[in-house]
Design a protein around this nucleic acid. Sequence first.
RNA 1: GCCCCCGUAGCUCAGUGGAUUAGAGCAUCUGUCUUCGGAACAGAGGGUCGGCGGUUCGAGUCCGUCCGGGGGUACCA
Length: 549
Amino acid sequence: MRELQESLKRAIKDLFNVDVEPELTRPEEQFGDYSTNVAMQLAAQLGKSSREIAQTLADKVQYAETVDKTQVAGPGFINFFISDKALLDSLNTQPSKELDGKEILVEFGDPNPFKEMHIGHLYSYIVGDAIAGLLEASGATVRRLSYHGDVGLHVAKAVFGLRELKKPRQGQEEDTAIEKEGYLGKAYAYGAKKYEEDEESKEEIDKINLKIYEGDDPQINNLHQAGINLSFDYFDKILDLLSINNDKRYLESQTIPAGKELVEKNLDSVFKQSQGAIVYEGEKVGLHTRVFITSKGLPTYETKDLGLTVLKDKDYPQASRSIIITANEQSEYFKVMLAALAEINADLAKKTTHLSHGFLSLTTGKMSSRLGDVYPAMKLLLEVKAAVHEQYPDSQVRKEVTFGAVKYAFLKHRLGSDITIDIEESISLEGNSGPYLQYAFARANSILQKVDIGQQAGDDSLTLQTGERSLTRKLSEYQEVVVKATDELMPHHIATYLYELAQNFNRFYESSRIIGDEREVLRLKLVESYAQVLKNGLQLLNIPVVEKM
RNA sequence: GCCCCCGUAGCUCAGUGGAUUAGAGCAUCUGUCUUCGGAACAGAGGGUCGGCGGUUCGAGUCCGUCCGGGGGUACCA
């Protein structure tokens, strides 16, 4: 593809004395393997008809080695038909590691301790991990980070509850993380109830809130830490099920000193006093004003997040990029925070990218976080698990199918807008689903297991038949798709591609005998190549791959 | 009120300037059914791409406007 692009570029220079980067796209199969619209772009500039330009160019490039034929179509497209040999050769090219040597921070998940992890966090974790995987596939060293709110009224309520109810006993090894979390939930519910109903308790909780802030009461500190530990044990359990790594956790309370210092240092330059509070006037850059330090002198989330960027920078000074993934309700907020940061430390702000995902809802059941009525992450996982077990009681790989189904159901959607998941559909295990892809791999793998792929030389002069060529063509797109998904930080491109690839293979498989056929050598190579690409793609999304189902 | 995002088939979504017929999956209907794994494949029906106007050789895609939905909008995160 690079060669084609280069020879096209040279031809344009030679013929018309114009410097352009011709864009090559993948047209529909009937129109060839690559296509360019460069003639239409040049038409106005050169004062010639686009078809005429296209024809001149097509004639010139026709003699490039890898091109079988060219064709001018429609208003002036040039279509390139690549030779079978060149197409097959392109399957062996190594992926380009364009991020080799770079260190990139990716923050995602961010569930709050003392609260239930809900499906929104699950979505964030899965999407963030896939983005991290994309960057790793391009050679980057990725640090998976998360940030957790360990201060605030909700925490004080839970700590109060922990104190009033019985403390969790040490050494209860048989407790599962789920039960511990249930305990924490009870403590929170107890504290929240008391806060509403009992004036004395309310005062006490407010006091605890302040103590957590100041961190100078040993008993409160212990309870606070115990609660955090319980939560993180539970989060770890879920992450472990999902095979998601978490390199480092930051706590909101840790970010306060750095954040406050930054705001105070830049008071009167970046930040302004207003009505007793310290604010950043976002209007000057087309945004809105936000409070960084309240009139009571307490730092808001804005200040803490500012502090977090400082902490990350200190921990990972070599990082060339920092990506933060949250729900999109925080989009506007992040713009303001980053605008303020840009005035303080332009380099740091420039490195930081905020990405957001939409709300996740389920067609069955309701999830309204406004009412505090959240759908727990674990509940969803257990439901999918139960359904898989029911449908495939004898399967040896139910766990892989469960997590493959959940992850793929989330990842196939474009990042950004709200999505609705139908649990029934994602576990129905057919159609555009994770298990379909897992099955598609297992099937190919099964064929490969049956034969010994030796060093049999293929017949180079063989012309590819329709199904073979279609599959080969699709396989050759893989690297481009990875680059696109990485550039855009959009893992769904991989999901969409893998599904189309699997469909393409299944079509080929249905109509083409592989083992025992006179074209066995060639076809086995295609199957092998297909299995490899599918496996790479699934692994990149961190979707489990199984040899047998 | 102002700012941001979204509106594509009954449902869930791809497609974000290019190709006479806008693509998938689910659901509905019909085939393949002595199979290298049928968790599959082939086919049918189903769309004024929210409305209107504009830019362009070309608009689901860009611009304007209206309608509808979601989010944000100073001391929550």
